[in-house]
Design a protein around this nucleic acid. Structure first.
Lengths: 196, 196
DNA sequence: ACCTGAACACCGTTCAAGT
DNA sequence: ACCTGAACACCGTTCAAGT
């Protein structure tokens, strides 16, 4: 994706963003289990200790990655009305999570630790209040949607790589996963509609 | 909880269940992060390699723990009608997950890897079909409920120990967590009711 | 049936020092 | 501003061998 690393030449200094890019490369190529500080350092041709100049520790690196996975610059758009926009936001979030191997797990753990990746929750809550939901309910529905999205997608992603190792997991087709996902979102939004 | 370990005496052989009990003790006393094979061996006063006679690897030990956390022997009971029973099952599952530190995470990862902890999903699906839902819908609603439950509870549990380290996480009271949980379940079940 | 001893191939993190 | 070198305190897992 990035990093035209010149093999065997000058020391090549790195920025914080370089480190994040290299980490995302490893994530997509080998998965979260292989994203270690030592492996990352190796891919940047530095010593592991060099990474601690750019990030305080591994968790804060992962938090940065979670923000990159989840923040989509031109996403304020799509001014569809009411609850349709909420649905669109959910589908878009799923796509962003699926764009990176183990994306959902990275985001979920960062969110759980309160270290970042709060943008989707804010967007969802805003869309819900715009659709006429009161703030407290909007907050709670947003939470239900997020838990479902992160759970479903990380389940999906873990099955994908468990399945690639020949496990006998009864894996659904990509289309059936999408259908299941859409069903869940509609179920929750249907519950919201039934609330009033 | 168990283990009247006699200090400084005969070699004390262990069974597979002894190992699981000791693991649950460590889980509850120190959390999942401190549940390592080496620490577990130490608590049983054996070498780490001894554990691999009882379990093929760490994952299969965790899968066993997940089943113990989730399987409640006398739970076929509570013959309340229709969708009320579903709600009761969800609340009971939450209690079981909360009974062990990091219980939700242990169960979620085991479930994701397809290595166990499938009982709650089966119970929920059965209760839903008993309530008149067609099998495919029951399966999907059960999935939505499970993702929400595991997501909400593990969020809850991770905040609890992040908060115990003085982090500035805006932590809700135990009662507000329960209310939020109940709201989510009712939202989803409301969506199901609105489906017909 | 259950465990030891020793090894292998790893981890994240710290810290003084270099350029 | 960014990195090295060396160390510290750990991991999970394997395997021959013991009782």
């Amino acid at each position: 994706m990035t990093s035209s690393r010149n093999p065997r030449s000058a020391p090549t200094r790195h920025s914080r963003e370089d480190v994040a890019d290299a980490a995302l490369d490893i994530l997509n190529s080998y998965g979260l289990g292989d994203l270690t500080m030592r492996r990352l350092a190796q891919s940047l041709e530095v010593q592991p200790s060099a990474l601690y100049w750019h990030y305080e520790n591994k968790q804060s690196l992962l938090a940065h990655l979670a923000d990159l996975i989840v923040d989509v610059p031109g996403s304020a758009a799509a001014e569809t009305p009411g609850t349709t926009r909420v649905r669109t936001l959910c589908l878009a979030l799923r796509e962003r999570l699926l764009a990176y191997r183990d994306g959902a797990e990275v985001v979920a753990s960062t969110l759980a630790l309160g270290l970042g990746a709060e943008a989707p929750g804010r967007e969802l809550t805003a869309a819900l209040t715009d659709a006429g939901t009161d703030p407290e309910t909007a907050q709670r529905v947003s939470g239900v949607l997020l838990h479902f999205i992160l759970g479903q997608v990380s389940h999906e992603q873990q099955r994908a790589q468990a399945g690639s190792l020949g496990a006998a997991t009864p894996t659904g087709t990509p289309e059936s996963e999408s259908a299941e996902f859409g069903f869940g979102i509609d179920l929750i939004l249907g519950g919201l509609a039934a609330l009033r």
